[in-house]
Simulated assay, not measured.
Amino acid sequence: MGAACFFFAALWSAFTYTPWTLIAARIVGGVGIGLASALAITYITECAPAKYRGTLSSAYQLLTILGIFLTNVINFGIANAGSLDWGINSGWRWMLGIGCIPAAIFFLALFLSPESPRFLIQSGREEEGFAILEKIGGTDEARREVADVKASIERDKNGKLTDLFKKPLLIPFLIGLLLAAFNQVGGQNAVSYYGPTMFKAALGNNIPNVEFLCSSLVGLVELIFTVVGMALIDKAGRKPLLVTSAAGMGVFAAIMAFAFHANIGWLVVAGACGFIACFAFGLGPVTWVMIPELFPTYMRGRASGLCTVLLWGINFCVGQFTPMMFEGWGGSGTFIFWMIMDFIGAISIAKFAPETKGKTLEEIQALWTK
């Protein structure tokens, strides 16, 4: 369903002729994002072996960043493919419509994907679930995991959504909400969404389409450091990466605030690269890895979904209010705000987040029942 929403939203966006139909098309695309982001990472988490779960789950973020990078490169190419008038009249339609191609690939690939083994076991289809787990980790590991999952399901078979609001699930739920919030209030999407506008304001119009060129550079940095995060997540651990990431973003937000204040265009771009690099190796991928890890099988999908709702809700606010912040506070004041949020995030994560590296999902669940 999410893939279908992506496909139709891309085509609809390309052929729309009024602002309201464009907004409607983007809302359909947003439904696709909500479905895919909440479910894909849960699916990966439930299929991955414990020792590789961080790396495999963070592949979700890597491919998201790869998509953003390719989008910036493609948009730069489209912007240079014709005149300014052509770009205003037709070029933007190509920028939006071309998204139907990866959406179609995603839709078709899903028919080759098996169901989550934990969902199958929970639904009484134990043999199917065992067969998938056996392919992933071997016979002995599959038997152990099936036993753990069945024990977890038996213990929680009478569970309800309201369990999230009382012990023992209240603690992991609050931690999940904390991670979801600081994934967005750190300010990285201010750069992702409004980078072209910021870079054009900082560097002027001396280089044609400089805003798309700089956005492509930032996207490349994000891609590289997402790979760094994938390499470290199952070695350094989740919590050290999160704390270092948030603190580093705070430092580079301070640099960008100074650069805007002093009107140093190249330092704005350099600061943005550092800012996004810190997000890419920590808060970006690790948030998506840890949130579904925190919850038992029967609650994982729903709890992860609620955390994702908060994440995208704050994302919406960042998208809506960043232009107002720039207009009212200027670039300097805006990044001082993000700096404060990042340092608060680093302190909060250091105090409350657990370490889940190397633990099975059932072992993580046991943390809340000790």
Rank of each mutant, 00 (worst) to 15 (best):
M325G: 14
I347M: 06
G333M: 04
F343P: 02
V318E: 02
W338K: 00
L306G: 10
A350D: 10
L310K: 12
I314E: 06
M299Y: 04
W288R: 10
W338P: 09
G305H: 05
I349E: 01
W329N: 12
G328W: 05
L294D: 09
L294Q: 02
I344G: 06
W288Y: 15
T297Y: 00
L306R: 09
K351Y: 04
R302T: 14
F337G: 10
Y298M: 07
V318P: 07
F337N: 06
M339A: 15
R300L: 01
S332Q: 12
V318W: 08
W312E: 08
G330V: 01
N315I: 01
C307Q: 03
M325D: 10
L294P: 15
P292F: 00
F295M: 03
I349S: 02
G345L: 01
S332D: 14
G345I: 02
N315W: 08
V309Y: 05
G301M: 03
S332C: 07
F335V: 06
T308V: 05
F295R: 01
G319A: 11
K351L: 13
L310G: 14
G305N: 10
E293Y: 00
V289Q: 08
P292K: 04
T297W: 03
G331E: 12
L310E: 12
V309P: 06
F321L: 09
G331I: 07
Y298I: 12
F321E: 07
I314T: 09
C317D: 06
C307W: 00
W338D: 04
I336T: 13
G330T: 08
T322W: 04
A303L: 03
G330L: 03
R302Q: 15
N315M: 08
F321A: 02
E293H: 10
E293V: 04
P296G: 10
M324P: 04
G313A: 10
M339H: 09
W312V: 04
I314R: 12
Q320R: 11
F321G: 12
I340Y: 05
D342K: 02
R300V: 03
L311I: 04
M299R: 13
W329T: 08
I291L: 04
G328C: 03
P323F: 05
L310Q: 13
W329L: 15
L294W: 08
M341W: 00
P292Y: 01
F316W: 13
E327P: 04
D342N: 15
T322D: 10
V318T: 08
